[in-house]
Design a protein around this nucleic acid. Structure first.
Length: 418
DNA sequence: AAGTCGGGGTT
DNA sequence: AACCCAGACTT
């Protein structure tokens, strides 16, 4: 037992000393404001420090206090989050700010149960806020910590399992030196981010290399053990980039996504599912696809004439891989968009697999119907999407996922300003 | 326990 | 181009 106490003291002591020398100067570390810690921890979920820094600065400028955040329109919060991804983090953060206003008068609670009950705050973030903001001896186990400890203590359990995280939490809790929770937890994560990296860890500069079990066994690169995620399923979609005419000249047609599900409440270019028959559709002309898009636009009350296939774009979510084919349209003001009756524009200008003209087989028809149903299921019943003609300057108030920002930017640099 | 939620990095 | 990284919530 004596040995394990000494071993703990060695690990924690060396780590704290290294952290004092090596810690990065980060915006949320310049003062110990629980609100700053909270916002930064939410942003840092699944997101690198370098990406977060400019978002954090802008967010705090725009919403300096919990009260400002609680009282802001949700669109403003979403716009501030544009490009960061996982947008439910932003909605949950604002919902939690409102909870803190109501329950605690705008002051972040320092009690574990109350912190953990706030929206968007799970086991990791609870520990991070309590330890970093209030120096409470709670573990904060993120991916960095699981990697560092699984190597140092040669833990070969699958870190994707719930039980392994619990095990590591207990281990981490026992390592916190009295009165040093804030620095120790940050040191552990900092080591994972800067030295004990997933690939090619920098063991030679590691402060605890001498007693790292994985290093001593030569298996540091093989840890942590983690079961692989399922690959994302491919989805094929036809996107309409509709240029306005007449009173809509200089504008583009956009719509807002349903309130729940993928990219909830974000703005986007209109799109519909294409046949998911990758490979089988190789070389098919784009004409029929444009006709189907025109018909869909017509159902939304927009008459548009197809111009050309404009570009292909891809976007990978954790569980879906979008293959998008974008078509340019011109609004045909006053005309009725007769589904299927519009002369097809140039065909086949973007060769490639996966963009069949639509349900050509039973299987393809089924795939399209399923994809369509999946999209609709995001909304409660048949919530009407909101369509809008926007000019470039309107982008300042509307949040778009990155994939549509890329398309608009390629369409014209005018649309690149955020 | 498995699936849903973005976006970017390294190799 | 292929592969890797990762918290909270829902089911």
């Amino acid at each position: 037992m004596q040995e394990s106490i000494d071993s703990k003291k060695y690990f924690s002591g060396e780590l704290l000393e290294w952290y004092e020398r090596s810690k990065r100067d980060l915006p949320w570390r310049r003062q110990r404001d629980p609100y700053y810690i909270w916002v930064s921890e939410i942003m840092l979920q699944q997101t690198r420090v370098d990406t977060v820094i400019p978002y954090f600065q802008r967010f705090i400028e725009r919403f300096p206090t919990i009260k400002d955040l609680a009282e802001a329109p949700e669109e403003d919060v979403l716009k501030c989050w544009e490009g960061l991804g996982y947008y439910s983090r932003a909605r949950n953060l604002q919902a939690a700010a409102r909870q803190v206003m109501e329950r605690h008068g705008g002051v972040v609670p320092d009690n574990k149960a109350e912190v953990a009950s706030l929206k968007g705050i799970g086991p990791y973030t609870t520990g991070a806020i309590l330890s970093i903001a209030f120096n409470r001896p709670e573990p904060a186990v993120d991916g960095n910590v699981m990697r560092v400890l699984s190597r140092y203590f040669l833990i070969e359990e699958d870190i994707a399992k719930t039980g392994t995280r619990t095990l590591i939490e207990e281990l981490a809790a026992g390592l916190i030196p009295r009165g040093r929770a804030a620095d120790f937890n940050q040191a552990l994560m900092e080591l994972g981010a800067l030295v004990c990296t997933p690939k090619s860890p920098q063991c030679l500069v590691c402060p605890v290399m001498a007693h790292c079990a994985a290093r001593l066994e030569g298996v540091e690169e093989a840890l942590p053990v983690k079961s692989k995620a399922k690959p994302p399923r491919p989805e094929y979609r036809l996107v309409a980039l509709v240029e306005g005419d007449g009173e809509h000249a200089g504008r583009v047609l956009v719509r807002r996504r349903p309130a729940a599900g993928l990219l909830a409440r974000m703005w986007e270019l209109p799109h519909i599912p294409a046949a998911a028959n990758a490979g089988e559709g190789a070389g098919l002309p784009d004409g029929p696809a444009m006709d189907r898009l025109a018909a869909a636009l017509s159902e939304a009350g927009v008459a548009a004439r197809p111009l050309e296939a404009f570009m292909d774009a891809e976007h990978t979510f954790s569980h879906i891989h979008w293959n998008l084919r974008v078509f340019r349209f011109r609004e045909a003001a006053g005309e009725l968009a007769a589904p299927g009756g519009i002369a097809a524009g140039p065909s086949g200008s973007l060769p490639g697999p996966g963009f069949g003209p639509g349900p050509g087989t039973d299987a393809a028809a089924k795939a399209v119907a399923e994809a369509s149903a999946a999209y609709e299921s995001g909304a409660s019943a048949n919530e009407a999407e909101e369509y809008r003609w926007i000019a470039p300057e309107d982008m300042e108030g509307l949040a778009f996922p990155n994939v549509f920002l890329r398309i608009l930017k390629q369409y014209s640099p005018l649309w690149s300003l955020s």
